[in-house]
Amino acid sequence: MWDFPIWPESASTVAPSVEALYLFIVALNIGITALVFGLLVLFSVLYYRRADDQVPPQYHGSMLLEIGWTAIPTVICLIVFAWGVKVYAELVVPPADAMDVYIVGRQWMWKAQYPGGQREINALHAVVGKPVKLTITSEDVLHSFSIPAFRVKSDAVPGRYTTLWFQPTQVGVYHIFCTEYCGTEHSRMIGKITVMEEADYQKWLSEKAELGDAVQGRKLFAKLQCVTCHAGESQARAPSLEEIHMKRIPLSFDKGSPVAPGATVLADENYLRESIRYPSAKIAAGYQYPSIMPAYDESLVSEDEMFQLIAYIKSLKKGQTPARNEHTTTPTALGAPAGRP
């Protein structure tokens, strides 16, 4: 019973940075608290009331002191702020080679999808030394995806994507918590992340092999008849989606347009998602408002399917848009194993 931790494990590359900042503020805390408590005790011992009619000397202030205890904390605060921003930048900007994993929160579970199509519930697997970028959303209420051992956390917001990333530094099993109160079984919305060596991970992946997200997305792309307009070679009705991801897209500017002339948008996951859910929101230059594309809401494209479509669009290379008549591609024709476990 007395064997209990007071220090969480520090198992990612950002954890030591957070820890260093934490220790710095702890030192500040101890220093200033000790000063306050020490002076309180000291003054109590030195200046207790010795007689009922004792009247001490009446000071009214000292400009120097007052400026001092305004200026010094200000400087300390600025230092802490700047250091905090530096660590924050580490926490929010993922490296370019991070592996994408998609997380959907719902009452009361975490669903994870890997690019290879593997899925897990309330569990995640990662490789030591390999960065992972999570793109997170929710199907119902707010949740928050937290891995204390990695010092990372991000809310899952319905209708939007948020991201976090980490690079594990030691093999082990760590907690995943939901930290945003989400209803009755909030405290059961927990999971485990298993950090493995590369070889073990590959073994695990192959055991869980499924159709890749992008492959599933390609099927959806055909099934939902996206290909009829987003035809690649002919851009009369809709723009080509080839290699669109993370490009800057010039936006349509016509009469009464909300966007300024020459405005652009970065085609990140949030933009792709918005363009599927609300096609008229930000229309690419050269196309008319309102968009002729129908809106695909949750009943037509679930959050899971949305991730598959986006994975497909991200993987789409020049000239790879399928032909319009290719409506019924079988998985085997794409070289992926048939059937889903």
């Binding site: 991070a98 290879g116 890749g212």
Partner: peptide
């Protein structure tokens, strides 16, 4: 909607690479 991510080589993140 500002671009806080540095424009990176996202080919690395394409599926099937790992």
């Amino acid at each position: 909607n500002y671009d806080v991510l540095p424009p990176a080589d996202h080919a690395a993140a394409a599926p099937g690479k790992h």
